[in-house]
Write a protein that binds this DNA or RNA. Structure first.
Lengths: 213, 213
DNA sequence: ATTAACCTACCTACCAGTTGGTATGTAATT
DNA sequence: AATTACATACCAACTGGTAGGTAGGTTAAT
């Protein structure tokens, strides 16, 4: 296999190029020819690895997702014991990434969801799953924080986690129009403040309940 | 002129069809032929009204924006005197629309921003302006509410208004993937709660400041 | 000998956009 | 009242180029 010697296999190079282009222009606007030229592979080569452009779409989505998962796994917040501090560590990492000019301010899951949901049901389902998995990761932190700091409140951690995903996706869209990443930072800041407010409320309620009960 | 007798001029019919299709599939995936066929006009007819597909893009964006402005103007919240209640009225209307199954859960400004920002600078600028105008509308309500209920707080109403736009855009994306509009309702609910929390905090601070000063 | 990993050359459908019309109305001229 | 002139609102048929995809090969490693 080439993978051992060369940095990346041809297939992975194709996936990388496709990801890069589709992050900027979306699925439909990117042509197979474009991907081939930029990767330095002919069309025959491309169709050796992918059945069709649609097939590429699914593969690219999976590839992108894996890279995102890895990225999150490499974030330093996991080792933080206190769940609320861990949450802030999580948000810090995302804010750092928003500030980093080298990182593309776009999300393939969001792009595909918007562009392909009504025409490619399979991709729509895939996007749904990825969104849910991402939200679930955040939900776990929120659940722990809730249990520790506001166990009696009826805070809906699932909805709150999904809310963050929405904030993030929306901020990406705004940042593209504005060509300014501050919206992303602000979105994270607002979410932070909101969660803080919710936990304060939860604590109060918990105290009240304890007094009552 | 035909406009008086017929419901809509040919140009407006073309704009409508284009809007409808592009809300679902995005700009690139919609072909001029498709728009023509669905409108019942030939290509010659289309290019009589629009210089190019790009030109159509800009026109469609403007047309969509106007329709959205009109929609907001027709909402009942404007007559509410109390600015905080007016804000809730505003949010109520958006939540109602999220619930209404007849309304397409998609925003052309968001779609275009995501799809075309990197390739069509003019459209990107247009999206930016529309987003800003929408945020500004909300900012005005927030400003009034701030002045009345938390005049001393250093609440950033502009950032908060933009945050709502982001929440809304993000929720639309999620709702497409999930095929469930509850995320939109939830997004609005969370924003509501967040603003409430901010105003409570502002009130406390104002009280404190008054005591101190 | 077989298979994976490509490449060259090509096909067909469809894309945005053009050409050169016609039908209709309107406004000024005769 | 008839004629000329011009504009608007379309249509049918076409063009050039590009899209996704295929057929059939070559090369090199297993």
């Amino acid at each position: 296999m080439k993978t051992t010697k060369e940095a990346l296999s041809t297939k992975e190079q194709l996936l990388r190029t496709a990801t890069e282009l589709m992050l900027a222009k979306g699925f439909t606007a990117v042509t197979v020819d474009e991907i081939c030229e930029k990767t330095g592979v002919t069309k025959g080569g491309f169709f050796h690895y992918f059945e069709s452009k649609d097939d590429l779409g699914k593969s690219v989505l999976e590839y992108y997702w894996q890279s995102q998962v890895q990225m999150v796994q490499e974030m330093p917040f996991h080792s933080i014991k206190d769940p609320l501090k861990r949450l802030h560590g999580f948000l810090d990492s995302f804010a750092d990434r928003a500030r980093d000019p080298q990182i593309t301010k776009s999300c393939l899951i969001g792009n595909f969801s918007q562009e392909l949901s009504s025409t490619y049901p399979e991709i729509r389902t895939l996007c749904d799953k990825k969104f849910s998995m991402f939200a679930d990761m955040l939900k776990q932190i929120l659940d722990e924080a809730k249990q520790m700091y506001a166990p009696r409140s009826r805070l809906d951690t699932k909805s709150l986690a999904e809310h963050f995903v929405a904030i993030f996706q929306g901020a990406l869209i705004l940042s593209k129009a504005k060509q300014d990443t501050k919206v992303i930072e602000e979105g994270i800041r607002h979410f932070r403040q909101y969660v803080e407010a919710l936990f304060k409320k939860g604590r109060k309620k918990a105290v009240k309940s304890r007094k009552r009960g």
